[in-house]
Design a protein around this nucleic acid. Sequence first.
DNA 1: GCGTCGATCCACT
DNA 2: GTGGATCGACGCA
Length: 200
Amino acid sequence: MSSRLLTREELAIDPVDAAQLLLGAYLEAGDVRVRIVEVEAYRGGDDPASHCYRGKTPRNEVMFGPAGFLYVYFVYGMHFCANVVSLVDGVPGAVLLRAGEVVSGEDIAFSRRPASRSAAELAKGPARLCKVLGLDRSSNGLDLTSASSPVRLYAGEPATSVRSGPRVGVAVAMDVPWRFWIDSPAVSTYKRGGKRRNSA
DNA sequence: GCGTCGATCCACT
DNA sequence: GTGGATCGACGCA
């Protein structure tokens, strides 16, 4: 199987391009390996949906650093979401990993998510993906391009027939189709951003 | 210092 | 399909 690590240079590109590069790639943590099937691109200062829109803070610091690092954040009081940092040092940008297929360590994945009714549900959603891989706050800032890192990112087959649409759960910038996915039962269902402005 | 909100998931109707 | 859970980060006073 393909076990070539993605390099920092390959990931030091625009998040929109990096997102499509990550489709079909593999994320591995411990004995669990996941094939990425759904992602979203987040930019920096020009993207109102990005954590970096209002500048650098202690939380989003990793997104401002070099490409190839893992950005994990805590949300809704109980969930974690994982991003792969893209672009170069000093310029914020990242790709949110929304969903994947568990291709290795399925038994461990089920034990971490007993609520899953099928294999497709194991990593169907950003917080689920994190849980299956055992990612949490302590995983923030790990180098995904290092063979000695506990969490690594491997190249996959080039993704064919990439689909795109608006990002999930985002109430702003609905006009940019920065969610990308490939055909898979593990792709999460679209949900519009909850809070809407007084429109009409 | 305090109030609001969130790149979500799960149980329940 | 819909609402509630649940708490850290951020924005403003």
